[in-house]
């Protein structure tokens, strides 16, 4: 069986912590960090990286275009 594994990269300095991506993620991968960036915003990061399927929903709703998405198909044994 094949499975999609995804990876998101958040540009921490341009993220404003609006949490729209947290809401849009179907597999609850994204959370807001406890730490803040240079502007004082709690930036988004991958809390559960294993669950990411690379659907790019987070990047679709991001107003600041700070999310880059990668996706790869892997064969499960």
């Amino acid at each position: 069986m094949a499975k999609m594994i995804g990876l998101i990269e958040v540009d921490i300095e341009t993220c404003k912590g609006c949490s729209l991506c947290v809401e849009a993620c179907p597999t609850s991968v994204i959370e807001l960090a406890e730490e803040v960036n240079g502007k004082g915003y709690n930036y988004a990061y991958m809390e559960n990286p294993d669950a990411c399927i690379g659907c790019a929903n987070c990047s679709m709703v991001c107003p600041d275009s700070c999310i880059t998405v990668y996706r790869k198909k892997v064969e499960m044994v």
Binding site: I5, L7, S59, C66, I67, T68, V69, Y70, K72
Partner: peptide, 15 residues
Amino acid sequence: VFNDIKKPENLVYSK
């Protein structure tokens, strides 16, 4: 695993 995924051919979305 991350380095394996993070390749130009796997890019789905970028700015």
